[in-house]
């Protein structure tokens, strides 16, 4: 084999790069874990069922923002007829009081950085 040293070095580099998640996880001792989020103490019912909220909450909040800021529509009616004020801090965070335990755990887990908090301030934060 010509240039044996160079070719083998390249191959070792290749394997190290493509196997990066494996050896990184082994080296850092990562475990498979799932974040558990804090459920509201008093309330059992969100706007919609948990599955829908998990998938659609970001869409809902973005729609709320547009409705309130651009159309001044401040009342949200759920499919089963309950009414809520369209407000992240005034409605959502009233039940999900602990932002760190309700929002951040999942967002950090998935490395999601929603820009809600560029403007909004959660209770207790400065």
């Amino acid at each position: 084999m010509y240039d044996k040293g160079k070719i083998l070095t390249g191959l070792v580099l290749f394997v190290a790069i493509v196997a990066f998640p494996f050896w990184w996880s082994l080296a850092s001792g990562a475990e498979v874990r799932v974040p558990d989020i804090a459920k509201p103490a008093g309330e059992t019912q969100c706007l919609e069922d948990a599955e829908t909220m998990r998938r659609e909450h970001m869409q809902l909040l973005a729609t709320w923002r547009d409705d309130v800021v651009r159309l001044r529509q401040r009342i949200h009616t759920t499919p089963d007829g309950r009414q809520y004020r369209k407000s992240l801090t005034g409605t959502c965070l009233q039940c999900h009081t602990d932002k760190a335990a309700s929002c951040d755990r999942c967002h950090d887990y998935l490395d999601v950085a929603p820009y809600c908090w560029d403007c909004h301030v959660a209770t207790g934060e400065r």
């Binding site: 998640p21 494996f22 990562a30 498979v32 887990y109």
Partner: peptide, 23 residues
């Protein structure tokens, strides 16, 4: 489709750490 990302990450982490599981 808005898939459940928590489940996706559990699957991917299981593969990366050689502790496979299907959430």
């Amino acid at each position: 489709g808005k898939v459940d990302l928590i489940a996706v990450k559990e699957l991917a982490l299981g593969l990366a750490t050689f502790q496979p599981r299907v959430p």
